[in-house]
């Protein structure tokens, strides 16, 4: 079931963050949502995740949604495996498979506070994916990782997406990340989807790909940044 939003609005006091926004997310499509800081990217994601009771408008979204947050948000008093199985109907073997998929089989007995940032984020992905969601919401899950870990996790996310084929909405402020991962890039500005760009380049992609370089310039301009510095 595709996800449809129409006339979605949200204001915090006088500040309008989402202003009668319309959007459709297609099944199995990897969408990246870009926007300047404070543009309402996370507000939109939280609305889709059902975490914002005050958002108005029509949100037609599947029940099968999973979220990976910016901080991994593992439950600290549950060992890793218990974090994955929390609220899960499926048998434990599925949770073990999910941990194996993100390369954490050997850490299944570990306390979350003993994991590294990359491990915790992988665990958070496993916890989301084990639910076999139709829609996977990723709220800047890579932003706190170091550059090397981020590259590895980008690969992992693409592999997992290719295998499970959920629709993905990745909220990010990193244009390169969006270009490397997504089929479609949205730019949120003034509370609406200001740009909606398809990326057809084959994966794995390289930053130097001429098509992507052109897109990067376009997107940076859309975000109000000139790659050559101030113009």
């Amino acid at each position: 079931m595709a996800t449809r939003l129409s006339g979605v609005a949200r204001a915090f006091g006088d500040r309008v963050v989402l202003d009668s926004l319309d959007l459709e997310l297609r099944d199995g499509e990897f969408t990246a949502l870009l926007g300047r800081s404070g543009s309402g990217k996370s507000t939109l994601l939280r609305a889709l995740a059902g975490l914002d009771p005050e958002v108005t408008g029509t949100i037609d979204v599947t029940d099968s949604v999973a979220v990976a947050f910016q901080e991994p948000r593992l439950v600290p008093w549950k060992r890793l495996l218990a974090n994955i199985t929390l609220g899960l109907d499926a048998p434990v073997s599925k949770a073990k498979e999910a941990l194996a998929e993100v390369g954490l089989s050997e850490r299944s007995d570990a306390w979350p506070l003993t994991l590294s940032g990359g491990e915790a984020q992988r665990a958070s992905l496993a916890r989301a994916l084990v639910r076999e969601p139709e829609l996977l919401l990723l709220d800047e899950p890579f932003s706190a990782l170091d550059a090397l870990t981020r590259i590895t996790i980008h690969q992992l996310v693409l592999e997992l997406w290719a295998r499970h084929r959920p629709a993905v909405l990745l909220v990010t402020h990193d244009v390169d990340e969006a270009l490397l991962l997504a089929d479609r890039v949205l730019v949120l500005d003034e509370g609406r989807i200001a740009h909606d760009i398809s990326i057809t380049a084959d994966r794995p992609r390289h930053r130097e790909d001429p098509g992507l370089v052109t897109l990067r310039t376009t997107l940076l301009a859309a975000l109000g940044v000139s790659p050559e510095g101030r113009s």
């Binding site: 995740a49 059902g50 975490l51 999973a66 979220v67 948000r73 439950v75 929390l86 609220g87 899960l88």
Partner: peptide, 12 residues
Amino acid sequence: GKLAEVATTLKL
């Protein structure tokens, strides 16, 4: 509260 949100997304 962030863990309570996790609980919501995990449909506890």
